[in-house]
Design a protein around this nucleic acid. Structure first.
Lengths: 209, 209
DNA sequence: TGAAAACTGTACCGCCGGTACAGGAGGGGA
DNA sequence: TCCCCTCCTGTACCGGCGGTACAGTTTTCA
């Protein structure tokens, strides 16, 4: 029971790293068992097929992702009562976390699955869709709280603004990876922060000389 | 000579659609030749191996991408002399073009290659990197022109702001595809437009009642 | 009309995903 | 102590796929 979980986790660790670098189609089961130090039969004892591996991989990734967001924005919320300041602080903390990753962000499994849609069954696609919808709800909830206090300078749809956070993160990952510039992702998050700040923070009237 | 080009193009068309749906690893040469109505020998007459196919596919995609941007932002520039208005109009035209795609954006090959890095040789990765750098230069050029006329409301790095355009596009594609909401991508571009507008357009003083 | 371009046909290799199934080590409870 | 269940290993096999090799054939265009 205990030993099984451990092996399963080790397979998932190896598989996640491989899939983010080469995609699902580019990752062979043979190389996974070689690196994990397990036999083929052992692999298929844990996962019925590659689709089931993908399912487990994606679910674990999404759970972990949610946990990180919970922690970061929870910490930000503990530090200030104002919803806008708390959100801005959360984005700051997120960008710091991202720029602290030694080799840059390894990639997002949600994006990987997105570019592999036809290879998996409906369940995986639905899981992926729900993950993105959860991001929309999460950021949307925070933005709605902000809007109750701060009227936006320009009319914006809350869900679209919430999606903007996900867009910049996903896009930033692609840019960062492609450019091999680990910092780009963190910078993009800060740029988004500037946007949110400008959108909600009241204009400070400059005293005329 | 003429016939060869035609077949080559047909292979690339079929391959591009397949790769955007299933990734490179998930696309088999056998299925490509089946759909193209060509033999395996015929395929390898045109492309030495899968890597060469990827190279041709990526180059064609990037060229086409550049052409579209040239056309859209060229048209916008013809319609107004002001660099800010022209850029904002360009984003508007881009969002309209994206929302007119019947089945949503099929996906970006640059992102696909990005999530497949370890599968290809350095040349492809370098091509991909240069494509993103070209976007940075393109949007950076336009933003610099804007900045010469309009001082930004918040201090921003031009390259990072230029990257924001690419981020939102790449991220918007991922969201749109994953959510199966074709409109999301166009909405994200409009949201970015709001950002740029707010950043550069001077604050209009409301006359007090 | 003839050479080059654009293929087809056939045979083969090794890797990979997946299946089937038998068997064994090791630990925990009755 | 014994047995059962979990967690594997070993072996053998299948078909699909990427890729190679190469000879032969049709099509195109100058």
């Amino acid at each position: 029971m205990r030993k099984g979980e451990e092996t399963r986790t080790r397979i998932l660790d190896v598989a996640e790293a491989a899939v983010l670098q080469k995609g699902f189609g580019g990752t062979s089961i043979e190389e996974l068992i070689a690196e994990t130090g397990i036999t083929k039969s052992g692999f298929f004892y844990h996962f019925r097929d590659k689709n089931e591996l993908a399912k487990a991989l994606l679910n674990r990734y999404i759970d972990n992702d949610e946990r990180i967001y919970d922690e970061i924005f929870g910490r930000a919320r503990d530090l200030t009562g104002d919803p806008l300041q708390s959100f801005l602080l959360g984005l700051k903390l997120l960008s710091e976390l991202l720029s602290d990753l030694p080799n840059g962000h390894p990639g997002c499994l949600v994006a990987t699955v997105c570019y592999y849609e036809r290879l998996f069954d409906r369940e995986i696609q639905e899981t992926n869709r729900n993950a993105v919808l959860a991001w929309r709800r999460r950021f949307g909830r925070m933005l709605r709280e902000i809007m109750e206090v701060y009227p936006p300078r320009e009319p914006v749809d809350v869900d679209q603004l919430a999606d903007m956070v996900s867009s910049v993160l996903e896009g930033g990952i692609v840019l960062s990876k492609t450019l091999k510039e680990p910092n780009t992702l963190a910078e993009q998050v800060l740029m988004l922060r500037t946007f949110v700040k400008m959108l909600f923070l009241p204009v400070v009237e400059m005293p005329r000389a």
